[in-house]
């Protein structure tokens, strides 16, 4: 475990110095602040009410997006810098590198969620037109947080695998696009459509049936409540995707020249 601990420490050191992570934290904070600060505008016919409950729910999606963004960014920097080359020479080598990046993702999600929560709490207490929900409503919204954190981890893991699978020099545009495509579920929808596009030409009914059958495999749909599934199912789906992503990452790096 020492080797993994070292790789984690080094990964954390890199993350704290990484522009993508810093940018993700700052932009998340600015985004939520701007949302709240709109209530300070003079009331000239349009009233901005700051609803803590709805903003809290919004912040979950932002956390998922920025976790994915930060980790994909770190993977991009790792790829450009031959990060694996350095890691491969250390204890636990390649496996340690993959594990360290995979384990950093939930940490980033938790940090960003904490930043969002603290910021919202402060704004809720200070903003004059803030609509603070009751404890039961807050608890209901907060109960969704673990599923979102797990989903954030999964999106980040899949994002990193995509970066590692196509190890070319990439910039912020790719990271942004990748995060949007993943977190909004566009990628999953595209994959689903790829499955039904051929049957659609022959029988729309068959295509729809197939689409309906495959829908439960979509993490984004399950997470956003488009599917009638419980939170346990969302967790299970996220864990499965996470496991597959980790396995793929390991397979990618196990024998690759670095």
């Amino acid at each position: 475990m020492t080797g993994l601990a070292n790789q984690l420490r080094a990964g954390l050191y890199l993350l704290l110095h990484d522009a993508y992570f810093k940018g993700a934290t700052v932009v998340l904070a600015m985004w939520l602040s701007a949302y709240g600060l709109l209530t300070l505008l003079p009331d000239d016919g349009v009233t901005f009410a700051f609803s803590l409950g709805s903003t809290f729910a919004l912040s979950f999606r932002l956390v998922a997006f920025f976790t994915c963004f930060a980790m994909m960014g770190l993977a991009v920097h790792d790829t450009a810098a031959g990060g694996m080359r350095a890691a491969a020479l250390a204890g636990r080598g390649r496996a340690g590198y993959v594990a360290s990046r995979m384990l950093l993702a939930p940490l980033v999600a938790v940090v960003l969620a904490a930043v969002a929560t603290v910021l919202l709490a402060v704004m809720g207490a200070m903003l004059p037109r803030a609509l603070v929900p009751g404890p039961s409503a807050v608890a209901e919204v907060a109960s969704q947080l673990p599923a979102y954190l797990l989903a954030s981890w999964t999106y980040a893991a899949v994002g990193m695998v995509l970066v590692w699978a196509f190890p070319r020099e990439r910039g912020i545009g790719t990271v942004l696009l990748g995060s949007v495509v993943l977190v909004t579920g566009l990628l999953e929808t595209a994959v689903l459509m790829a499955f039904v596009i051929v049957p659609l030409a022959f029988s729309p009914e068959l295509a729809w049936d197939l689409f309906s059958a495959l829908q439960p495999a979509s993490l984004s749909m399950a997470l956003q409540g488009s599917l009638e599934v419980g939170s346990g199912y969302v967790v299970l789906l996220a864990v499965v995707y996470l496991g597959v992503a980790w396995l793929l990452a390991w397979r990618l790096w196990a024998r690759r020249a670095v």
């Binding site: 070292n6 080094a10 050191y13 110095h17 920097h77 450009a80 020479l89 204890g91």
Partner: peptide, 25 residues
């Protein structure tokens, strides 16, 4: 040291060394 040094371009020299030192424990 094989081919070009594996370094993070947006870190300074000391930070690059620190990263490697942490990896090596």
């Amino acid at each position: 040291l094989v081919e070009a040094p594996a370094v993070y371009g947006r870190l300074d020299a000391f930070e690059n060394l620190m990263n490697r030192a942490l990896v090596l424990g």
